[in-house]
């Protein structure tokens, strides 16, 4: 009986979300001026909070590399760091979103094991290993669930953005962030040209 009630509530939630999505649009466009993958996300919306995400993306250390090289997550996401290598690594970041006070070192753990960390602050997190200085990876923590990783040519599409006015930010490794206001009503466009 209890189970049926829960199922009904879940169905109701899904229906509500779908009806919300119906009034939502997309932001798409291209990030140029740089080569390779970039990240585009919607800046924090005043007075609006989002439920904590439950998915736990994994960043692997494999062959002396962080894989994947760039991961975008929503604020509050727990990222799991895996070590697949038969050598010891560590993971640390000197800052989050440029704030050096948020530096952290996860330490060293054996091959095959994971170590989680919850990212509660938005901004780019440069991942480093202090025994292999050539290793580099990035987590971009988006303050909203509206974000996208571009393809290699810079094309992106953020779906399910409720209609409204937003600030959209483009991030690229080693380039200056660029933000611009975007009004979303149905399908909207935002192109960025970044420079190093």
């Amino acid at each position: 009986m209890k189970r049926t009630l829960i199922s009904m509530m879940m169905v109701g939630t899904v229906v509500m979300m779908l009806s919300l999505a119906a009034s939502a649009g997309t932001i798409s466009g291209k990030v140029s001026g740089v080569s390779g993958e970039s990240v585009v996300y919607v800046e924090a919306v005043a007075g609006k909070t989002f439920p904590a995400p439950t998915a736990k993306p994994v960043i692997d250390q494999k062959g002396l590399m962080f894989q994947p090289h760039i991961v975008v997550v929503e604020q509050g996401t727990t990222v799991e760091f895996l070590n697949s290598d038969k050598v010891a690594h560590n993971v640390f970041w000197p800052s989050v979103g440029g704030n050096k006070k948020l530096t952290h070192n996860l330490g060293t753990w054996p091959q095959g094991e994971k170590r989680p960390f919850k990212f509660d602050n938005a901004g780019a997190v440069p991942l480093l290993c202090n025994v292999h200085p050539e290793m580099a990876g990035y987590i971009v923590v988006s303050p909203t669930p509206y974000f996208a990783l571009t393809d290699k040519s810079g094309e992106y599409k953020i779906e399910n953005v409720p209609d409204g006015s937003y600030t959209v930010v483009a991030w690229h490794e080693g380039a200056k962030n660029q933000s611009k206001p975007v009004s979303v009503a149905g399908d909207s466009k935002a192109d960025f040209t970044l420079s190093k």
Partner: peptide
């Protein structure tokens, strides 16, 4: 013991 016998020791902030 695991740290002692490994190639490098497992330090709090990385292998050393």
């Amino acid at each position: 013991p695991a740290s002692r016998h490994d190639v490098q020791a497992a330090g709090a902030t990385g292998p050393r």
